[in-house]
Amino acid sequence: MNQKIKQKIAFFILFLSICLVVIPIVLLVIFIGIKGLPAINWEFLTGLPKQGMRAGGIFPAIVGTVYLVIGAVLFSLPIGILSAIYLSEYAKENILTRLIRLAIINLSGVPSIVYGLFGLAFFVIFFNFGTSVLSGSLTLGIMILPIIITATQESLKSVPYAFREVSLSLGATKWQTIKNIVLPNALPGILTGTILGIARAAGETAPILFTVAAFYLPHLPKSIFDQVMALPYHLYVISTQIPGVPDRMRYGTALVLLVMVLSINLIAIILRYQLRKKKRW
């Protein structure tokens, strides 16, 4: 009996701790929703900022973020997928492979601000790309590389080994086997990983601080060597750097960023769920 009461108390404490996690999240989303929704209208989403960002819209910031994300994915997707293919299909168990794994773990742990420093020193100054969409995209691309590699590797691993053996036994080369059998079946998993990478890239601020982000730039970029505004940085600027920005606009910007990132994540979650249901082997 005593043990049963102990268990009840223990489980209640566990329940409280999960409440401490979940309730603030729900409140936060609702809070931003309620406060930000009044700001959302056509002009806010598609207009240029006015009066030193105290009025007008956030269109350039949305576009900037989209450009950055596209650039980052274009850079990291091919490298990430090929890298995962190397690790799961070609690599032998040796020191080099272990070093690669170590490097991936390390890349995923490097603080985002350190990526910012690296992007500044390497892309902006060393390669002389300047503060530009190019520098920012490459920096973000390296940052999301471990996400894409890990996800791809996992989905490659989930393709049964027997398929590879059968394909080879019919006279396929290794690459033909990968291209015809392994990759098509790993695709949904790769897509999920890529989407999560996109969400991460869209929400990060620190890596773009010194590599791309423009404080105030009320027009759209013309080339990859231009600076852009970006949503996360814009939120930072209007909430800490500029006095007198109406609250409505701050919450509105936060809401747009939050909805963007969370809906990208939601797509990934749904995709993964569908994938689990559909598995045929």
Partner: peptide, 28 residues
């Protein structure tokens, strides 16, 4: 030849992570 080129490309991508970690550390 095609298989050879593909395998080399895959290998280079495979070690890209090491390269990036080294580059980050080097430039810091």
């Amino acid at each position: 030849l095609r298989e050879f080129i593909i395998e080399k490309t895959i290998f280079l991508s495979g070690i890209a992570s090491i390269l990036f970690v080294l580059l980050i550390f080097l430039f810091l």
